[in-house]
Amino acid sequence: MWLELHEVVRRFGTRAAVNGLSFQLERGAIGCLLGPSGCGKTTALRCIAGFEPIDDGVIRAQGVVLAKRGESIAPEKRHIGMVFQDLALFPHLNVHDNVAFGLAHVSRDERRRRVEELLTVVGLADRCFHYPHQLSGGEQQRVALARALAPKPDIVLLDEPFSSLDSELRERLGLEVRQVLKRFGATALLVTHDQREAFAVADVVGVMRDGRLEQWATPYELYHQPATRFVADFIGEGVFLPGDIVGPSAVQTELGVLHMNGGARWRPGQRVDLLLRPDDVIHDDASPLTAEVCARTFRGADFLYTLRLPSGTQLLSLVPSHHDHAIGERIGIRIEPDHVVAFERKSS
């Protein structure tokens, strides 16, 4: 495994910011730690970079131990590049010298060639002699990435790299960053609280909460097969529909009996909540099942309707935007879930 964390713990005083974090990243893969602020994702990144010691567990890269309790390879010896949240470009150096900073040990020609190559890839070849303060936010971002990639690090870490940019720029740059990383075959780990950013950049995403991973999976799996209620809640939109297990994979709900794919762990009679994504609830005028529109958000290509069932339960439904219904109207719906995921109902 290219990068491997095993039961990593990092405490600040009595609080464990990282609390038994384990995951593995393959060579050339782009991973992402996603979670709300304070979940420990940045601390985890800093442990991998070597700026924080770890109190327990082990971090390995290509089988070599980078850090374990009481032992730590110095950050400058880890061959790990980093893109910082505030970018941390050196204000006294121009773009060329910033990118060349980590290339002190290579020959001058090699250095110039490498910097030129990187700047061309990130589209800043003509900004060579500009200083950081003369660049736009997006340009600074790309310089920071080029600088981190210049010494050909084994792993590149990106700490909320887009947080200083406006949201429109973020997604575009996210894709650009992914392309650049892929082009250099870099193994990378990103940290963010923004799932769109995570999904745009990463191959595999870990959702973190209270210092540990809730789930480590592809974006598709996170969305459609969340392992925990927290992941279901944190990723995407959706509602929980109460129901009772009536068969090995059948759930009785007020919308009828729904079938789960693989429900071996449930016993009949158990009370569960089913996750229904807005795209699982289809608008169908022919359907006998109706619900009242109680809120709507126009999103351009579609409407997101909040619907109320007779019982009072609310559903979200994504509907093409030519279906314009007023609040208070009753519309027909059909449930067509690709994956029905159930969570044990919390007894309240």
Partner: peptide
């Protein structure tokens, strides 16, 4: 602190950090 860390992650620690980053700044 991030400037220091950026330099360190690029291999410039200790005296190098002072000479190449701090003194010019």
């Amino acid at each position: 602190a991030a400037i220091d860390e950026a330099a360190v992650s690029l291999g410039a620690a200790g005296f190098q950090l002072v000479r190449r980053v701090h003194v010019p700044l």
